[in-house]
Design a protein around this nucleic acid. Structure first.
Length: 929
RNA sequence: GCGGACGUGGCGGAAUGGUAGACGCAAGGGACUUAAAAUCCCUUGGGAGCAAUCCCGUGAGGGUUCGAGUCCCUCCGUCCGCACCA
């Protein structure tokens, strides 16, 4: 019928127009079919899509199109994660307004995405910077505030004194701001926090039920939450040695079994007792100041030597009133974990051992490894943290570690020492408590923290009465989490305004619902450092909604992770204006059946979304707590790098590669200058190893790009973009087009009704097609796209082979013609999810009047997968020697007899009788000599 | 340091404990062509042999098993995440 080349440039836009005109990808909320929600992580509108987007959105589109063919009502939406720093950076660098920059980028990227032919419901599109979106986010913030899920507290931040802004840890490079180069300071700022740590236990437990998540991500989240079970222990202090006569110090430990190996106590430099002692000791104050200089830079912390300073304070061992322990301030103790204080057992903790070896405090081993003689067991440079038997530990001697922990906990829980006065420090609120102890329903943010300046850094949740204090036991079991509360305040313009008003009289007052959204002012400037909202002449000045007096708006905006923590819920009914979600819709569509995105979001985005969904459930906006039932993390797109011998990177488009024998050689296409071929790395602007999707789509069409993105590597691994690979995909596009053309010609001889019998060659074609169908279906379900593609190649190869065997037109019998047409109809539908435009063109060429995008998935004939005879490999002692073909239902004894007559088997047995013959039906025969 | 993943031809990669190398790329040979491109056919893990066929082979070494790329142990290497979390 046709031997023309397939013209993707002409065909692809034509089919997209047809899809658009018929609106076939619009999803109705009232469709009665079973739902399927497939979502790819929405993009940041940087201005152009990159190959990573092509890969991500192609995978999602394959799933969407397949599930649609399987009869599901598929929701496959797209939007924009549109707030964030790059817009402000662009504003500063190019004098464009963040809003204009963002919406221009969205328009450009939308055009690019549309050229990919993705089966998206664009009617549901929104950007998180649309006031119609963030209005609801502000409403939920206020709901969360009311529900006790939000609080305001002080927290340390990286402050850039030049830019007058807060920096994320990754923006601090060698202790300096990434933009200004100024030395970064540690500042205490009052900020808004989501109380995610209250959910730590639940977030951890539910990970077990996220069965369709990668184990890797589940492990990462578990580690991030970091649950540990331990004991809070109150050490009495010798009041004569304490700066203000303090009487106790509370520490957290998970190794209470090693209490008899204690050599010292250590406090964080930020611990109140450290600060109190420093007031009376200038040298200590200087030491603490030195500790703070190290800052938060990752590397500095890693390399820092363990340093301490003896405060002169002495603590009393809980099991021995005569045992005094020196209290140090040490630079490696974190204030925001546990109580900010520890006891040091050097023999069984490397950090503590390093510390005592420096300050010559000695060590006593209290756990003896199996097989070691306790009398000679000593620790010098390497702490022992394995399992063993307790020694040198009085009543614990001979116990296992677990028994000792239990015994110590039991004894200290039942010990009540009459401390006279308040404990020096109790665990900070908001962490370190089992969730069931948290008080729910209280409006923390507005009630307690109305005067931010007076908020104590670590409010004491325990009653102050001395009587109750005396009744507290010395030890208390405690579950601690590494997970910190989620600080959402950002001193930025381009983010969702936090909808509260600060009033001198009334404190923190929520913006009334009727005044939502609090919108960003447009007339801002980026000429000066700092937050443009804060220095805007008018925006922040408002009347207090409660008392009417002059008040000021909160000028901080929300972390952009908040925006992306519920967009998936909004997609279910984005048109709704009065509430964030329609409960019927959101509960029907969620959870997302298949979420697809990059591994870089394994922790923060996914954990925040899980928390946010719980918070929405508590405030009635949704009926479940887990938003994503299935998660898939795809690998990156990587590419070879090229550079001039001088060192300057060169983009792939300018490089010509030649292959001479096994050697690859690169030259600059324009000048012939030699180019060095470097390593294969993630596509990045700095290494210039990027390939522009637009260029590929322009020259080969989007179907070729989509096919190649799926074909070469398992989807969860990195894929190497190569020119040869794209060429291969392009050749296959043309080959399919020719194959379908030839098949359509042959198919003209097909009878309308299915023949009663098929000849051998016709049957072989049918078997190949149905085998491919079975395998492609299974592999799409499991997102193994690279294998789907191999099966499609096999099917095409089988059909080409059948055509090649036809040496004269007369050989085309009606049954073969029918089989070929049937196979082509199956083949086209198999690759339609991957290459939808080519599939439409082929479907039409096969004489169909319908759209392949609307066709049901082909129906499998199971009987074609079953062979009458099976060919079994025959092994002798596990080595393959021959094949034997037997009837499918042959008895094992018959197979055994047949195998023993084979020449190869006789030869291998060398005349001896076999010891045993193992027949695994339909699988293999193994003769044991 | 802790945790996790991975290691298979020249390359990307296949393989419910059951024929290792599917499928693709690259390479070599051939057909068609004045020639090239495109297309089609053949070969392609290593070694021995004219051949039938045989030997070796999934990072290294052990083990379990009739049978191990796959399961277990030790080691080596690569990658990723977390990192002074008491």
């Amino acid at each position: 019928m046709t031997t023309d080349r397939y013209n993707s440039r002409e065909a692809e836009p034509r089919w997209r127009k047809v899809w658009d005109a018929q609106g076939i990808f619009a999803t109705r909320n009232d469709d009665p079919r079973p739902k399927y929600y497939v979502l790819e992580m929405f993009p940041y509108p940087s201005g152009r899509i990159h190959m990573g987007h092509v890969r991500n959105y192609t995978m999602g589109d394959v799933v969407a199109r397949y599930k649609r063919a399987m009869g599901f009502n598929v929701l496959h939406p797209m939007g924009w994660d549109a707030f964030g720093m790059p817009a402000e950076n662009a504003a500063m660098a190019q004098k464009v307004h963040p809003k204009a920059w963002t919406y221009d980028n969205i328009a450009a990227m939308k055009k690019q995405l549309q050229s990919m032919g993705l089966s998206l419901d664009w009617a549901r599109e929104f950007a998180t910077c649309d006031p119609s979106y963030y209005k609801h986010q502000q409403k939920m913030f206020l709901d969360f505030l009311k529900a006790g899920l939000v609080e305001r507290k002080q927290s340390k931040v990286n402050w850039d004194p030049v830019d007058q802004t807060v920096l994320a840890n990754e923006q601090v490079i060698d202790g300096r701001g990434w933009r200004s180069g100024a030395l970064v300071e540690q500042r205490e700022l009052t900020q808004w926090f989501f109380r995610i740590s209250d959910c730590a236990q639940d977030l951890l437990e539910e990970i077990d039920r996220l069965e369709r998540w990668p184990d890797k991500v589940r492990t990462m989240q578990r580690n991030w939450i970091g649950r540990s079970e331990g004991l809070l222990v109150r050490f009495a202090l010798d009041p004569k040695t304490a700066p203000n006569g303090e009487t106790e110090l509370e520490i957290f430990t998970t190794r209470h079994d090693t209490l008899f190996g204690a050599k010292f106590m250590a406090l964080s430099p930020d611990h109140p007792l450290s600060l109190a002692a420093a007031k009376k000791n200038p040298k200590l104050a200087a030491f603490i100041a030195e500790c703070k200089k190290i800052g938060t830079a990752q590397e500095a912390i890693e390399k820092a030597e363990k340093l301490g300073f003896d405060t002169g304070i002495r603590a009393i061992h809980p099991f021995d009133p005569d045992w005094r322990l020196p209290v140090y301030v040490a630079n490696f103790i974190l204030m925001d974990y546990g109580t900010g204080a520890i006891f040091g057992c050097p023999a069984h903790d490397q950090r503590d051992l390093d510390f005592v070896n420096k300050y010559r405090l000695g060590n006593v081993p209290v756990v003896c490894p199996p097989g070691q003689d306790p009398k000679t067991f000593v620790i010098t440079d390497v702490a022992f943290d394995g399992d063993g038997t307790m020694i040198n530990s009085r009543f614990l001697d001979g116990m296992t570690i677990d028994e000792a922990k239990e015994e110590v906990a039991r004894r200290l829980e039942n010990t009540f020492v009459p401390f006279d006065g308040r404990p020096y420090l109790s665990p900070p609120a908001g962490r370190g408590r089992p969730p069931e102890q948290s008080e729910g329903g209280q409006v923390r943010g507005s009630s307690r923290d109305s005067e931010p300046a007076e908020t104590p850094p670590h409010p004491d949740p325990l009653p102050a009465s001395g009587e109750r204090e005396a009744n507290r036991p010395v030890g208390r079991r405690q579950v601690n989490f590494r997970l910190r509360d989620w600080g959402i305040s950002r001193q930025r313009y381009w983010g969702c305004p936090i909808p509260v008003i600060h009033c001198e009289t009334c404190g923190v007052v929520p913006v009334p619902d009727k005044d939502l959204p609090v919108t960003l002012p447009d007339d801002i400037d980026f000429d000066k450092p700092g937050n443009p909202l804060d220095r805007h002449p008018a925006w922040k000045h408002v009347a207090c909604p409660q008392c009417g007096k002059a008040a000021r708006r909160e000028t901080d905006t929300m972390d952009t992770f908040v925006d992306s923590s519920w967009y998936f819920a909004r997609f279910t009914d984005p048109w709704r204006t009065d509430t964030p979600t329609d409960r019927a819709m959101v509960d029907a569509w969620l959870p997302v059946d298949q979420y697809i995105g990059g591994i870089e979001h394994a922790i923060l985005h996914l954990l925040y979304s899980r928390f946010f969904t719980r918070a929405m459930m508590k405030t009635g906006h949704i009926g479940m707590k887990e938003p994503f039932a299935g998660l898939f993390t795809q690998g990156m797109v990587v590419h070879e790098t090229y550079r001039r011998p001088g060192g300057e990177w060169v983009i792939p488009a300018e490089v010509r590669i030649e292959t001479i024998g096994d050697q690859r050689r690169a030259t600059l296409a324009a000048t012939g200058e030699p180019i060095e071929i470097g390593g294969i790395e993630k596509m990045s602007k700095s290494k210039k190893n990027t390939v522009d999707p637009d260029d590929i789509i322009e020259s080969f069409g989007t179907d070729t790009a989509r096919w190649f993105m799926l074909s070469d590597s398992p989807p969860d691994r990195d894929v190497i973009w190569t020119e040869e690979g794209v060429q291969g995909a392009w050749r296959f596009v043309q080959r399919l087009w020719r194959l379908v053309g030839e098949t359509a010609e042959i198919g003209k001889a097909a009878p309308a009704a299915r023949p009663a019998a098929f000849g051998a060659d016709a049957l072989a074609v049918r078997k190949a097609a149905h085998k491919a169908l079975a395998r492609v279906s299974e592999d799409i379900e499991k997102l193994r796209f690279n294998r789907c593609i191999a099966h499609i190649y096999e099917c095409a190869n089988a059909m080409s082979g059948a055509i090649g065997d036809i040496d004269a037109p007369a050989r085309v019998t009606p049954d073969l013609a029918f089989a070929m047409k049937e196979a082509a109809d199956i083949l086209v539908r198999l690759f339609a999810p991957m290459m939808p435009h080519l599939a439409e063109e082929c479907w039409a060429a096969l004489g169909h009047q319908t759209l392949v995008s609307l066709q049901p998935w082909p129906k499998l004939e199971e009987s074609l997968l079953v062979e009458d005879t099976v060919t079994l490999p025959v092994q002798v002692n596990g080595k393959k020697r021959a094949d034997v073909t037997v009837a499918r239902d042959a008895a094992n004894a018959d197979i055994e007899a047949a195998v023993l007559t084979l020449d190869a088997v006789k030869r291998a047995l060398d005349g001896k009788a076999p010891k045993k013959v193992i027949v695994v039906p339909h699988r293999i025969v193994n003769v044991v000599a």
